[in-house]
Amino acid sequence: MSDDNKRFALEAKGLAKTFPYGEERLKVLVDADMRVVAGRSISIRGESGCGKTTLLNLLARLDFADTGELYWNGESYDPKLPPGPRDAARRACLIGVVYQAYYLIPEMNVLENVLLAARLAGSMGKDAKQRARELLNRVGVTNRERQLPQKLSGGERQRVAIARALLNRPKVILADEPTGNLDERSAGDVMELLLEACREEDAGLVLVTHNPSFAKATDEALNLVKGELSPA
């Protein structure tokens, strides 16, 4: 492992991914490089179906690549191999995820949903509870911790999802269109919160968005066109 790798919360080199398409293979990602520094944000824009979510899945090791290299906090992972138990355990500690559809567990209240991240990472305890409450306070969902997700607005649910993603002090947050289901005002608030929180928590942010103004607000803006990443 080089010293360069250690400097990045997440680094991908030459990631490529194809999908079968009839008798041929469809190139979704071609030689994608990305370096995510702690506390800084990167946005990725592109047309629907251009491979943005696939890129996030490869970065999170939820899918495997055809070629390339991948480092999480300087630790090397072979992105060509299907993810194993080690990946799952490290993912719980190093990567936070935020999705457009929130994915809060309906059988748990707000606090339990946030704490689920600590349970998955095996770090459940008093400290985790305290931090969950602080984060809920930080994202503006104070006094709603006993509520079920169904009782919250879309914006509130996404704030809870952000708090959940931040609970384990991840090195990187991967956010896949986190404002896609929100109205303009809520979307702005949530985006502002996400950027601020990542800075404060010293977590790198990879944001997939269609919104140009949100992309502009990040430290680095990338476009994904025909499978290739390029500066916006």
Partner: peptide, 15 residues
């Protein structure tokens, strides 16, 4: 199904 996907994304193993 999507919750299961999320659990994996959050670090849950298949087991």
């Amino acid at each position: 199904t999507r919750e299961i996907g999320l659990l994996v994304a959050m670090g849950g193993s298949r087991l």
